[in-house]
Design a protein around this nucleic acid. Structure first.
Lengths: 208, 208
DNA sequence: GTTACTTTGTGAAATCATTCACAAGCACCC
DNA sequence: GGGTGCTTGTGAATGATTTCACAAAGTAAC
């Protein structure tokens, strides 16, 4: 298939969220316009995004909420659960472990690792923090596909290398340093300080 | 000034980080190519980004690490401290409160608010959690410019409305729901479940 | 001072993403 | 069954961002 822009995938994810809300409210169909107004985009954008994957709507009517949800879940790879490990059981790691949004979407935390003896052995949301030395062996037996990396910047790259060597498929990085991974591994970063700096820029350039 | 793309601002922020590392290593000058290789971009991109704001380099030599850092800090509005409040003292709010990256960049947490009597009164990294009912009065006296919103999705929009009414300038939203703000308020959202879904998409479409 | 070498700054070209605009398809009503 | 009113799907147009490519400007060596 043609390459799909990240912005498109991000919006599909949002659409799915609205569809689930609509479903909960008992609605059967939804138009591209309704979907757009929720997500702060345009109806043309919605239709274009969907058109990359097929035609799911009925002209004159809109989209079946149920059908479109299933199709989106399928497209996004949410049809099956994903096994996730958390590397770093500090404050951020702990917050991630208990975050309900992950489980709701089929992301199951199957392991949490740290080096601090104080943390090892603690149960975070039902999962026991294990020694980072056990990480490779666990990954080999659990076959987790995704890692959440919430460790200090200094150790982020070495741990990334270990995860990659252990066969991880994707990493979500919360450390404030850019990481390097081989092309077959997918990497995304969430950098909160950077988000604040973008806000700072916007504040000083408000009327520019 | 001409409108600057968000992607450009984001990269400027990254450049500043590398410059600080270079500074710490005692380097005096840096070329666009060196700056680019750190951030996973190209030297042309670096030069284009900087060119929107002026010409800071010396041909044949590169950029003075010191000068360029100062100029970037100025451009990004980091020359002065920003007052930040955290709304929602749950796990994510607590993790944000203790996050060192904020303070290092001049973002000072001046208030934390919650509704849970169990949380109110707790000290998180030196700041006492206060009752959410005190929020408006505090904002009026503190003049905080930025709010970090880490509350359940259901109450995110009403709290946003209260922050806007109280004169907040920018909001960083961690709730997994899109928010609406008037145009004079800057809003950014960090949606961790959505980031995981983008990884999920990448995993199932790896070889597509 | 001239030559060789390096790196910036920037128009122009290329690529990528969004918006427009409208034909085609479907439901509903009379 | 034909008319009316919506809404989709999609080429074409526009707009935005990135990459290219090169003249201009600097350093350093002799």
């Amino acid at each position: 298939m043609k390459h799909i822009a990240e912005s498109t995938v991000r919006r599909l994810s949002l659409y799915l969220r609205f569809l689930e809300e609509f479903e909960a409210h008992g609605h059967q169909t939804i138009s591209s316009g309704e979907l757009a107004s929720q997500g702060g985009t345009t109806s043309a954008q919605v239709r274009k995004d969907l058109s990359f994957f097929g035609s799911f709507g009925k002209r004159g009517l809109g989209y079946s909420v149920n059908d479109l949800s299933s199709r989106l879940r399928e497209i996004l790879g949410l049809g099956r659960p994903w096994k996730v490990v958390i590397v770093g059981a500090g404050k951020i790691g702990a917050a991630l472990a208990q975050y309900r949004g992950f489980r709701e979407r089929g992301f199951r935390i199957v392991g949490i690792y740290d080096v601090d003896p104080q943390s090892i052995g603690l149960a975070l949301d039902g999962v026991t923090v294990r020694d980072q030395r056990d990480m490779e062996a666990d990954l080999a037996s659990l076959h987790a596909e995704i890692a959440l990396l919430s460790v200090p910047a200094e150790v982020a790259q070495p741990l990334t290398d270990r995860l990659v060597a252990a066969g991880i498929g994707a990493i979500l990085n919360f450390a404030s340093t850019p990481l390097h991974v081989p092309p077959h591994v997918t990497l995304r970063s969430v950098n909160m300080a950077l988000e604040l700096e973008i806000l700072s820029y916007a504040l000083v350039n408000r009327d520019a």
